[in-house]
């Protein structure tokens, strides 16, 4: 096949448009076929499968299954466990996204305004993004250890000093310090803290990239218009210029926050935390679908999860579109 084509090539050169398109079309389909079929098999087919299974009581190993209608979904919205699941997931997302975006922006602005040592801060803040989250979760678990952990040891240092004015330290000194991961009042906040710790460096880097595209002249212009203070300049120039970056950073942070799993599985392999206070959706899919083989309910959670992620992305697209029309 290859050899004749090569010898024919000079002949077809003059009349290129017509034969080339036929050839081009065939080549194009050959080149895209593997990618397209894998997309259908690995990404689209599973969505369809999950959609179908979410209406059944299928379990791996069973030959047959029954249709159960909307039962799986109605369980999700009526049972106490799933109420906790939504609560944990949304608490996490609503905490982690704004704070990690805010800290990312703050760090970027601070670093950008500095002359020296910028690179060092950038490197340090980016470290958690690179590190294996599971390994770092275990490190955090030791830090949070109630008796020998670094955190409670550091808090103990505050005993007998002015820091005792802080309620947490006062109570800790009088009685004992929090057990953090074992306490349902703290668990979800600790998880959120680690999520923020891990993610804000990523947002910082995106904002730093965004800041390089803000033109110097805009600041000069704003100053001439009377925006002298740093805050005014930020409000009038930097923030609007960073609009598209912010939309993107928020969306990607949301999608990542929805997928939190590693820390929770590392801290509480069974059950999703004290009193299920950290029973997030990814963990629920894993526990129900994979461990307990309740495929129907797992698929229903999967479908809800996909709906959330798609909605988020659509909102993002809508926001970006709106910006374009300005």
């Amino acid at each position: 096949m290859g050899a004749p084509d090569i010898t024919l090539q000079p002949l077809t050169k003059d009349t290129r448009p017509v034969p080339a398109t036929v050839q081009e079309r065939r080549a194009a389909w050959l080149l895209t076929a593997p990618a397209l079929s894998l997309m259908v098999l690995i990404l689209l087919l599973p969505v369809v499968v999950a959609a179908i299974l979410s209406f059944t009581d299928y379990a791996l190993g069973n030959d047959t299954f029954r249709w159960v209608g909307w039962k799986n979904y109605s369980h999700l919205f009526t049972r106490r466990t799933y109420e906790k699941m939504f609560l944990a997931t949304f608490t996490y997302v609503v905490t982690v996204v704004p704070i990690s975006v805010g800290l990312g922006l703050g760090a970027a602005l601070l670093i950008n305004s500095l002359g020296r040592f910028r690179e060092i801060y950038k490197t340090i803040y980016f470290l958690p993004v690179m590190a294996t989250l599971l390994a770092m979760s275990i490190a955090w678990e030791f830090m949070l250890h109630p008796s020998i952990g670094m955190i409670n040891r550091t808090l103990e240092l505050g005993c007998g000093t002015l820091f005792e004015a802080i309620p947490l330290i006062r109570e800790g000194c009088a009685d004992r310090f929090p057990v953090w991961l074992g306490d349902k009042r703290y668990a979800i906040w600790v998880i959120s803290f680690i999520g923020i710790w891990q993610g804000f460096g990523f947002n910082m880097v995106l904002y730093l990239a965004g800041l390089t595209s803000v033109h110097r002249e805009l600041y000069n212009a704003a100053e001439m218009d009377g925006a002298k203070s740093a805050w005014e300049q930020f409000r009038l120039v930097t923030w609007p210029a960073l609009g598209p970056t912010t939309v993107f950073v928020v969306t990607i942070s949301c999608i990542r926050a929805f997928q939190v799993f590693d820390t929770i599985e590392a801290f509480w392999p069974q059950g999703g935390g004290p009193n299920k206070s950290t029973y997030v959706m990814m963990f629920a899919i894993f526990e129900k679908g994979v461990q307990q083989n309740l495929i129907g309910i797992g698929s229903a959670i999967t479908m809800l999860f996909l709906v959330f992620v798609m909605l988020l992305t659509i909102v993002q697209c809508w926001l970006v579109e709106r910006k374009v029309h300005y």
Binding site: P46, V49, A50, I285, I295, T302, V309, M310
Partner: peptide
């Protein structure tokens, strides 16, 4: 159409469809 499919698939995080993938 092919490019549209690519853009649509960008919306699907692989972790989210882990359960059906696991079953397959």
């Amino acid at each position: 159409a092919a490019f549209g499919l690519v853009l649509f698939c960008l919306l699907i995080p692989v972790h989210a469809i882990a359960l059906p993938l696991y079953i397959l």
